[in-house]
């Protein structure tokens, strides 16, 4: 087995579609980390995930998973990773027991007992048809399948979207347990940033096919801030410090990209901490610069 430092390494990947392009994207996920992959709908999250799973071919660039080439070593990689899709891909007429039998042949490390224990924990019936499961139950079944073959990397594409907060919280808790041995990693694409604020170590933000931010979640959140000022003060702000400006009747809220520096420069202004949601919102409007 190859020793590797980064579970995922994406370098200069470009993929052109009619009307959309993944533009020279690069980011890494170190082993043992959980990375939140955020961006609005249509930003390129799913295309990136499909590219790294080799479901779609890339035009240029390099992708490595678990230190292996994503095309040349595709089947070796796929034995060691798990994928959870936004929609359940198992047929309605099958049941959880059938899925265990099917995956048992596919994954050399499939652990039937582990799978059963997840079913019990999630209170999923073994013999009930999947078609009769609720959306939450279906997602839990997908997760039980993903976690039962000792995968070193878990890739999740909008897996918590559409689930109620209780189920989402339960699932996030399970991911924390899964990561405990320090050898496993998670790439979790979502536009529900509150989930990622809770569990992600790192964040990558994609918009219109380009990576705008990637790195430690805490550093990203701590470095950004929302500066509140009146409209006259806006003229004094250095454009280099500003991501975008949200104007309202009373003044403006400005996203600054270096909160500490801005606190020195603009001492008469209040700078509030930013959330991932705020960062996403202000970066999406970075081209317009001013919005309301």
């Amino acid at each position: 087995m190859t020793a590797y430092q980064n579970s995922i390494e994406i370098n200069g990947v470009t993929k052109r579609y009619d009307g959309f392009m993944l533009d020279n994207i690069s980011f890494q996920i170190p082993k043992g980390c959980i990375m939140g992959f955020i961006g609005q709908n249509g930003a390129g999250k799913t295309t990136t995930i499909r590219s790294l799973l080799h479901i779609t071919n890339i035009d240029s660039g390099e992708i490595k998973l678990l230190g292996l080439d994503h095309v040349k070593d595709e089947y070796e990689i796929k034995k060691r990773i798990a994928v959870v899709f936004d929609e359940m891909p198992f047929h309605d007429s099958l049941n959880a027991k059938d899925m265990s039998l099917i995956f048992e042949g596919m994954y050399p490390d499939w652990d039937r007992n582990e799978f059963r224990s997840y079913l019990q924990r999630f209170q999923l019936p073994e013999k009930k048809k999947i078609g009769k499961f609720s959306k939450g139950m279906k997602m839990k079944l997908q997760i039980a399948c993903a976690l039962s073959h000792n995968a070193e990397l878990l890739v999740m594409d909008e897996a918590t979207t559409g689930l109620d907060p209780v189920v989402r919280d339960e699932i996030l808790h399970i991911f924390m347990e899964y990561l405990q041995n320090g050898e496993r990693s998670v790439l979790m694409s979502s536009h529900i940033t509150s989930d990622l604020e809770k569990i992600a170590d790192m964040v990558t933000f994609i918009d219109k096919g380009r990576i705008l931010l990637t790195g430690s979640k805490d550093e990203i959140v701590e470095s950004h801030g929302i500066l509140k000022c009146d409209k006259e003060k806006l003229a004094e702000l250095d454009p280099e410090d500003v991501v975008s400006i949200r104007t309202n009747n009373f003044g403006a809220e400005v996203m600054v990209n270096d909160r500490e520096d801005a606190a020195f420069k603009y001492r008469d202004c209040v700078i509030d901490p930013a959330t991932l949601d705020d960062i996403m919102l202000y970066y999406v409007h970075r081209d317009a610069k001013e919005w309301s």
């Binding site: 799973l53 080799h54 479901i55 796929k78 899709f85 929609e87 891909p89 047929h91 309605d92």
Partner: peptide, 18 residues
């Protein structure tokens, strides 16, 4: 048809089967 409709035809590309 069932595999296309259920999403299996797409998802199986992520599983270790050629």
């Amino acid at each position: 048809k069932k595999d296309v409709n259920s999403g299996w035809a797409r998802a199986v590309a992520a599983y270790p089967v050629t």
